[in-house]
Design a protein around this nucleic acid. Structure first.
Lengths: 339, 339
DNA sequence: ATTGGCACTCAGGTAGTTAGAGTGCCAAGT
DNA sequence: ACTTGGCACTCTAACTACCTGAGTGCCAAT
């Protein structure tokens, strides 16, 4: 086991490095912190820590910088979650006021999070996996087009335009609509496919083509929910931290622009402590994020997690405050969705 | 007037500079182009061009770089719009295939444009100013909530959730819905406010609160359309061109993240030639875009312009191809919306 | 008007030097 | 068994000096 004092030294190194952005040496360390010992002793400690791969010297005569492993140990065992300042809490409450609309709520949330952390913030749209159908509507939107609207019990609304290639028959549309609702109301999205099997056979031969087009589109809607969506804010914060990314920020920008990558990342991450999950540097198995850390928390509706939100920043980020912010915003969002 | 040959020299300078990213000197100029004259003559020409503020020397013994004014003259009088390669045309056609949904069409368009140009692409959502109401739907989305859907003749669908604070009365809802449609179908959005005046008075006293809530939300919907929306793609392309932005890319990122700035910019720009409008460097009166150029074109539906799209990149961009791409994509989008 | 020639300028690269921060290790002290 | 002062050593970053080459402006000759 690593002795207590070594851990203290590690903590000090991480804190100083985050603050000063300079590799930290033994001398400045004893100056800034009250260890009861001399720099030589600290040097010995640092040699141990280096042995353990927790810190690393960029070159022979430079100070030490935490490794990914060092940061990991720091967040797991050494850091306390800062509580938010009252002005931050006020900002959160203000942001959340008055929006019934899911799109708007999530939009506000992501901007809030990016302002709070000064990092790139992301919010995943609620997964519909566990949702249920509340209502299905079919509305004529042009001569030969129908608008399909799917409302789920989590309040998510999904719409899609269907091209029927022939004039819309309003009577038929009404019939399809009510039959669909009778059949599917309350059903889980996962079960929709099964329930729809053979659905068009309850219609007259001549209508079946149209019915099939509609049910097919409905299935696509349900399926489209598996490939979820993420919204981002604060991309400019990345550029402002440019010097924190050796090389260039462009691989990071590319990674976060690629929804697929982000989604994969986010869904792989499982909550650790404080309901927050994080990946540090190369723990992200995506190359472009080798110098980035990701802090993520789930948010809930009706008691179960429906999606995630979080921030992305340089490995040298202030983990304490970012974890606090992500976790707080997730809680507030959960609360906001509760109404 | 500036003599013909001087203009030839300017064109050569712009072309070489765009290609090599190096200030271009008199000697390399005569090597790369067949002017029938010596480098000394070119030097004289260049002195004239510098007099006219069309080019500029970063320092005494360096080559010349075009100024904003120089680029402007180049695009206005010297550049020919490249026609797209057949592979580019193919890419456009492919991208446009099969999407009836406005959201999806615009999403594809913006990604297409960013791939085609290797710049940051933007697409503005259609302005509803000149649109007309096609259909209004009211759907119960929870016990005390109603989903208001507004469909316009440009195919745009807008939705909003209304909290009624009491149980939804389905019969009343149906009544409101049909009366609204009778009243507003075909009306221009601008006229909706006028038409709704006194609308709730045709309902029983007890219902008026709910009716008012709904009409109010409808008006907000219409109003919300004045503050338009822009979607972006290819932000990572900025970072890849980092060296083209003296200082840092972060002001540029900030500018394009700020929808308000972009919208102001876009709406101020009026079509010049080839239906394309551009702002070069400091012609953008926004400071953060001092080293950026913006290429914009309008796209149409039913014969009139409904919104704009374009790209943003460094002033040292390939104007010919970008203008060609923007203009082509705008035309294709217009065509796609025609269906 | 064009051109070859020439003196001049200046950024950027190379090389050498220095200062300072930091290290590892050892022998002595507690 | 730790701790510590001391010391030799290392390496980067910063500064200097120097040089090279690309490019210029100007002038006298064509």
């Amino acid at each position: 086991m690593i002795p207590e004092r070594s851990l203290e030294v590690l903590r000090a190194i991480v804190q100083d490095y985050i603050q000063t952005k300079e590799p930290v040496g033994s001398k400045s360390l004893v100056e800034r912190h009250q260890f009861g010992v001399s720099s030589a002793t600290i040097r010995n400690e640092m040699a141990m820590l280096e042995e353990e791969q927790l810190i690393h010297a960029p070159h022979t005569s430079a100070g030490r910088v935490p490794t990914d492993k060092g940061y990991r140990l720091f967040v797991d065992r050494l850091s306390e979650v800062k509580s938010l300042s009252s002005s931050e809490k006020a900002a959160i409450s203000n942001f959340m006021v008055g929006s019934a609309d899911l799109d708007e709520t999530l939009g506000r949330t992501v901007r809030l999070l990016s302002q709070l952390t000064n990092q790139v913030a992301m919010v995943q749209y609620p997964s519909l996996g566990r949702s249920k159908v509340r209502n299905i509507e079919l509305i004529q939107s042009a001569d030969s087009r129908v608008l399909l609207i799917l409302i789920t019990d989590s309040g998510r609304i999904q719409q899609h335009v269907i091209e029927l290639n022939e004039l819309v028959n309003l009577e038929l549309l009404g019939e399809i609509r009510s039959k669909l609702n009778v059949l599917l109301a309350g059903a889980s999205l996962a079960g929709v496919g099964e329930l729809l099997r053979g659905f068009e056979e309850s219609f007259a031969q001549t209508s079946r083509v149209q019915v099939a087009l509609i049910t097919q589109s409905l299935l696509e809607q349900v399926d489209a929910n598996r490939q979820e969506k993420i919204i981002l804010a604060g991309t400019a914060n990345l550029a402002r931290r440019e010097e924190d990314f050796p090389g260039s920020i462009s691989p990071v920008l590319e990674a976060i622009e690629e929804q697929v990558v982000l989604l994969k990342l986010i869904t792989e991450m499982q909550a650790e402590q404080h309901g927050v999950s994080l990946r540090i540097g190369r723990e992200n198995d995506f190359e472009g994020l080798a110098n980035a850390s990701v802090v993520v928390s789930g948010y809930e509706n009706q008691g179960s997690e429906i999606a995630k939100l979080g921030v992305i920043g340089p490995t040298r980020m202030d983990y304490s405050s970012n974890i606090a912010a992500v976790s707080a915003v997730a809680r507030y969002l959960t609360k906001a969705l509760g109404n």
